[in-house]
């Protein structure tokens, strides 16, 4: 079967990217005077070595996976959506505001729905700018990221600041809305299932529905889509809206599952890292899951490296950056395709 060979090739090249990245990271560590293999082992331990480590990795992987699914779906439609960061922030904002208005447990669904809708509207703005005004989505989604960031920044310093007025952050959302922790004593929350669900639904939507087929046709060949009578405007809107909904959901899940409030530095760049996640996943919604775990492990592992070996934060970030770079290098042809 051709697809078996094809996915085999994709997996091999993604794994090669990770290996390349880790060896590049190892060289950085070595140059800085650390024994690389023990250091990598420490990272692995910190990311997977205990149930707590695993939980931390999955907690980090959850927003990465949700944003990654969103970015993947946009990529498939031929839109280079690098605005998952802003869409996620807007989703988080919506979750925090709804979390103040709705305070009973069953409202979780509505809070998350609201986050997804606001995230999708934020992405749709970029789609509209593209179809109506010809603005490249690369620029518009990036700019919308900044707008979302400064909007959140202003709100947490001003109108939405906590009652105590001490820090630039909102009050906690109602406790009834918090996502359950299903693996105590770890902090692993049920948002993980939302991420897995989104990946599966994204896969089914993309590969098993007529609309998904249309989205892929548009992404592979806009001219063929037009010739086949596929409305490029509506399909672009739809793809970006669904993409933004995933990122918005990431914001909502992160608020209800981890942070429980909004603050300026809410996302340490999940939305940007999601681009690398999507590339490592070879633009496959299900591939996003292992790719997100990979990047989650990297984040947690880098922190563990600091804790255990005393590698400085800057160095740990360099190792992380190398991984992203390697993913883009090996996945480069994929990026061209987008």
């Amino acid at each position: 079967m051709a697809w078996v060979a094809e996915s085999g090739r994709a997996i091999v090249s993604s794994v090669a990217a990770v290996i390349l990245a880790l060896s590049a990271g190892a060289i950085v560590l070595w140059v800085a005077g650390y024994a690389p293999l023990p250091a990598l082992w420490v990272m692995a331990q910190a990311a997977f070595g205990s149930q707590f480590a695993l939980a931390d990795t999955l907690i980090k992987a959850t927003p990465l996976a949700l944003c990654g699914v969103g970015v993947t779906l946009a990529f498939r439609s031929g839109q280079f959506n690098i605005g998952a960061e802003g869409q996620m922030l807007m989703g988080a904002l919506a979750a925090v505001i709804l979390g103040r208005l709705l305070v009973t447990g069953w409202a979780v669904v509505f809070v998350l729905l609201g986050a997804a809708i606001i995230g999708s509207l934020w992405a749709w703005l970029a789609a509209w700018l593209k179809t109506a005004r010809g603005v490249s989505e690369v620029i518009s989604t990036l700019m919308l990221n900044f707008i979302a960031f400064w909007l959140v920044s202003w709100l947490v310093h001003g109108p939405l600041q906590e009652g105590a007025k001490s820090y630039p952050q909102t009050d906690l959302v109602a406790e009834a809305l918090w996502l359950g922790r299903w693996l105590p004593p770890t902090r692993l929350h049920t948002g993980v299932f939302v991420a897995v669900g989104a990946a599966v639904v994204g896969y089914v939507w993309l590969f098993m529905t007529p609309i998904g087929l249309r989205v892929r046709v548009l992404g592979e060949s806009p001219q063929a889509a037009w010739t086949a009578g596929i409305d490029p405007v509506r399909t672009t809107w739809l793809a970006l809206a669904v993409s933004g909904a995933c990122a918005g959901l990431a914001g909502g899940v992160e608020v209800l599952g981890v942070s429980r409030r909004l603050y300026e530095q809410f996302s340490p760049g999940y939305g940007y890292m999601a681009v690398a996640v999507a590339l490592l996943a070879r633009r496959h919604p299900l591939g996003v899951l292992p790719a997100a775990v990979c990047f989650g492990a990297l984040e947690v592992g880098a922190a563990g490296l600091q804790r255990a070996v005393g590698v400085s934060a800057g160095l740990a970030s360099i190792v992380e950056a190398f991984v992203v770079l390697a993913v883009v290098v090996v996945g480069g042809r994929e990026a061209d395709a987008v």
């Binding site: 290996i19 060289i27 070595w30 005077g33 024994a35 690389p36």
Partner: peptide
């Protein structure tokens, strides 16, 4: 190439971190 790097790096070694503590 990447595997070669890894092996090379391991062989050259480096300053071992003072007994990395596992979580």
């Amino acid at each position: 190439l990447s595997i070669l790097w890894l092996i090379g790096v391991a062989a050259c070694g480096g300053k071992a971190p003072d007994t990395p503590t596992m979580p």
